[in-house]
């Protein structure tokens, strides 16, 4: 009673909390062309007090689709349904196969880091290959990321490394930054982060420089490298790509990354038990622009189709090998 009525588990209250949460807390309005006030009217008119959960879900997800943001997701109460604001062609995932790479391109491939890191020397040349499938923690909670040290030690005598982040949708920032740091030769300010300071769409604090530092000398790899990306390389993978853009000895090959760089995702609670994940901070480049919704564009654009993989071709990796051997 003293705290007011509070939102109840009704379709209208849930919709209102959903809309207001995005309105006040979502951090990427400045780079998204979305008229959120108009969408409230449209959505609210389609909801009434007797709306079913499915009807409410459809309205909320349709509103979210206007943002085209890979970090903006709506999840139902029992986690059986998940809607991501950025909808990509599901066939994109089939433009990459680690099994194909292991069988066709690698000599004695190894798996470490609780199954997250696959690595090996490329056949018939002195190049190393590292594939990292995710930046999330391992299922058993072990700090898998430190296993990269053993891989780098093993590859110290190679002429170059291919770091493959295709189909890697990101995860914990601490992991992607650790992996990136291994390839960094100096202190680099790779982007700026601006945090929301109030409910207005443009209420942000000043830019905070995001800086990465190289590790100890014997843990670095500062020779030539190629970073492989595709449209499913999102979030943390894009941060790695952003950092590598500062390295003169690094080249990005593949497709443009996902374009979902909004840092710091928060889980909001809706009255009906749904959760809404949204980014709170705006990432900008040193020139003030934002790669949000665009992605990190490779120096050399090559992409595989599902057919390429089925025919046991990985044009992206082949291009990377040729590039490093030139």
């Amino acid at each position: 009673m003293l705290l007011g009525p509070g939102p109840e588990n009704t379709p209208l209250d849930t919709f209102d909390v959903f809309w207001k949460t995005i309105d006040e807390k979502y951090g990427l309005f400045p780079v998204k062309i979305v008229n959120w006030d108009s969408l409230y009217t449209i959505g609210r008119n389609r909801i009434n007090s007797s709306a079913t959960e499915e009807e409410l879900w459809n309205v909320c997800s349709q509103l979210l689709s206007h943002f085209d943001d890979g970090h903006l997701t709506l999840i139902n109460k029992d986690y059986s349904e998940w809607y991501c604001s950025r909808q990509l062609d599901p066939d994109l995932a089939y433009g990459f196969s680690i099994e194909l790479i292991k069988s066709k391109f690698l000599y004695a491939p190894k798996v470490t880091g609780e199954g997250i890191i696959t690595y090996g020397k490329i056949k018939d040349c002195n190049l190393g290959y590292i594939y990292i499938s995710t930046f999330y923690p391992a299922n058993n909670g072990r700090e898998w990321v430190y296993d990269i040290q053993d891989v780098i030690r093993e590859f110290q005598s190679t002429d170059g490394i291919i770091l493959d982040l295709r189909n890697n949708g990101g995860g914990y920032a601490v992991n992607d930054l650790y992996i990136a740091s291994v390839f960094v030769d100096r202190e680099i300010t790779y982007c700026y982060s601006r945090m929301k300071t109030g409910p207005g769409h443009n209420e942000f604090g000043g830019p905070v420089a995001k800086v990465i530092y190289p590790p100890l000398e014997n843990l670095r790899y500062n020779k030539k490298n190629v970073l492989l990306t595709n449209r499913l390389s999102g979030s943390g993978s894009e941060i790695v790509a952003l950092i590598f853009k500062n390295l003169s000895y690094s080249t990005q090959i593949g497709d443009t990354t996902n374009g979902s760089l909004g840092e710091v995702t928060h889980v909001a609670q809706l009255p009906n038990g749904w959760t809404l994940n949204y980014p709170c901070t705006l990432i900008t480049l040193p020139d003030g622009s934002s790669p949000e919704g665009i992605g990190i564009i490779p120096e050399i654009s090559v992409d595989n189709t599902k057919t390429d993989i089925n025919e046991e071709n990985d044009k992206v990796l082949e291009k990377a090998i040729d590039f490093l051997l030139e």
Partner: peptide
């Protein structure tokens, strides 16, 4: 004001 749901 801005949440820091991020992990690090």
């Amino acid at each position: 004001f801005s949440s820091s749901g991020d992990y690090d």
